[in-house]
């Protein structure tokens, strides 16, 4: 089948970009979306043109590298999937598709459909960890975890950090990503000691990076390839508010020690 693409082309971070029209005449319905772009890129290379830059790695929908906006929906029209797992059988012959990079101040475009998601790394560095001593692995079930907590923590831990939530949000808010990270550690006993500092640090970093605020409209969970729920955002708000109101200055307690 034939697919017409309007692809965002931008040479570099500070370059002006524009949509360029390409025709893909021989698209197989069995191809993934990225395979279609691979074929396009081979044609472009053969013609001596610059291939379309897009990020990808595992192509199994689990690494979080790939992703761009297809006709205004992050990761395209199929819910619960990344673009690498989106197949051309979901499109019709003659479809015209607009491909644009994630648009956010905090995600500068590096080239074409590729953005710099370093802001996510800095949010994780601001609290998305647990400080435990390394060494021999602890005995299994030495720390009891209620089953529902473990399941909800695992649901949140499915976040692959692709950035679709930011792309879909009209405010370019990183609340779904950050809240997934806050929840997957905050629900487990290992995450308790740093639970409040984590919420404070990550929420503050989110604002420093230039992401917007959550309006609870739910676009993020609709496009999330891992179907992370906005219930996590409420949990992040809860942790943040408890932490912000209950924060004690260092040295106020602990004189016994």
């Amino acid at each position: 089948m034939k697919i017409i693409l309007h692809v965002w082309r931008q040479k570099g971070r500070d370059a002006e970009g524009k949509l360029v029209r390409y025709e893909c005449p021989n698209v197989s319905e069995h191809m993934s979306f990225l395979e279609m772009l691979d074929v396009l890129n081979e044609d472009l290379t053969a013609r001596g043109e610059d291939p379309v830059a897009f990020e990808h790695d595992c192509r199994e929908g689990i690494c979080g590298c790939c992703g761009f906006v297809i006709n205004g929906v992050a990761h395209g029209p199929m819910p619960g999937t990344t673009v690498c797992q989106l197949h051309m059988r979901h499109f019709k012959d003659g479809d015209e598709l607009y491909l644009e990079p994630w648009r956010a101040m905090a995600f500068p475009v590096l080239k074409d459909l590729m953005v710099d998601r370093g802001a996510f790394d800095r949010i994780i560095a601001a609290g998305g960890y647990v400080s435990v001593s390394t060494g021999a692995p602890p005995d299994g079930n030495a720390l009891p975890v209620p089953k529902s907590d473990a399941e909800r923590a695992m649901d949140a831990a499915q976040c692959i950090g692709c950035g679709a939530c930011v792309a879909a949000c009209p405010n370019a808010s990183a609340s779904l990503f950050t809240s997934a990270k806050v929840s997957h550690l905050g629900l487990l006993p290992q995450g308790q000691p740093e639970r409040h500092e984590r919420a404070l640090g990550m929420v503050r970093q989110m604002a420093i990076e230039g992401f917007g605020a959550c309006g609870n409209i739910g676009e993020c969970e609709a496009v999330c390839p891992k179907r992370i729920s906005i219930e996590n955002i409420a949990r992040m708000h809860r942790d943040y508010l408890c932490a912000a109101f209950g924060e004690r200055p260092h040295g106020e307690t602990g004189s016994a020690g």
Binding site: V69, A213, E219
Partner: peptide, 17 residues
């Protein structure tokens, strides 16, 4: 803050949820 967070909009945007 929200307007600053999305300085450039999409040529095409479709609400999903």
């Amino acid at each position: 803050m929200n307007v600053q967070a999305r300085p450039k909009g999409y040529a095409k945007w479709t609400p999903a949820g």
